[in-house]
């Protein structure tokens, strides 16, 4: 995936006839709507030239999707495009109707929550959720993807809330009241959690100090308050 993403980054610019975007497991070729098919073929050939030259090619075997925008591609046009993509880029063309809906959804950005999720608070997101802090008893984290807690998980965590049974719930200290994955809910095992303490470093004036991860929220609030006090013209 790394090299594919790089290709997408390096060879796309706004205003281009063909824009390459990296999606979950492949590349998406977005065709400009106001370009003729001949122009698009030329552009694709230019874009994929490098891949061919680099031997086996960095895109070899990668799945490709074509997003034709509002235009309708004829069967002949599809064959032309497929010929270039497989011939020049060694790509496996999967479709000419844009990215599959499910794939688009699964690349949602993870939500990173910094602070303690306290009793009565609910963090909900339709992707992965990372809590940098604790989830206390009575607090809830609900994610369509994975739940990762960089601290104590003492409350309720639900991963794969939209039905993804492959999602996981992870915590440095795993001591939840309940855990749900997909549509399965269980009580946590009754054994002491063997966690390892996470700590963070920060600057205190010119010195560096180290604190427990759970204090990150407090630390942030404290520095924000200090900044507010020192900035002139307030109050």
């Amino acid at each position: 995936m790394g090299k594919v993403a790089r290709l997408a980054r390096e060879r796309s610019a706004p205003g281009q006839l063909v824009t390459i975007r990296g999606i979950r497991n492949g590349l998406l070729f977005v065709l400009a709507e106001d370009a003729t098919i001949a122009e698009l073929i030329d552009e694709l050939e230019r874009l994929l030239q490098g891949s061919e030259r680099e031997g086996v090619g960095e895109t070899a075997g990668v799945t490709a999707y074509v997003d034709p925008g509002a235009r309708r591609l004829t069967d002949d046009e599809c064959d032309l495009l497929r010929g270039i993509l497989t011939g020049k880029g060694n790509l496996v063309v999967k479709g000419f109707a844009g990215p599959p809906a499910a794939l688009e959804e699964s690349v949602k950005q993870p939500y990173i929550y910094k602070g303690t999720v306290r009793s009565g608070q609910v963090i909900e997101h339709d992707g992965d959720v990372v809590v940098v802090g604790d989830v206390n008893a009575g607090g809830r984290v609900i994610a369509a993807g994975d739940v990762v807690v960089m601290g104590h998980l003492r409350g309720f965590a639900q991963a794969g809330a939209a039905g993804d049974a492959a999602a996981v719930v992870a915590a440095v200290y795993f001591e939840p009241l309940q855990v749900s994955i997909g549509d399965v809910t269980r009580r946590a095992p009754e054994r002491p959690s063997r966690g390892a303490e996470m700590e963070f470093a920060y600057l205190e004036g010119a010195d560096m100090a180290v604190e427990r991860m759970a204090m990150l929220g407090q630390h942030r609030a404290r520095s924000a308050a200090r900044r507010a006090r020192h900035s002139p013209g307030e109050r």
Binding site: R118, S119, A221, A225
Partner: peptide, 14 residues
């Protein structure tokens, strides 16, 4: 814990 969460919502710093 619940009250601290509500205080944070009320923008009362730490």
């Amino acid at each position: 814990d619940r009250v601290i969460g509500l205080l944070e919502k009320e923008q009362i710093p730490s």
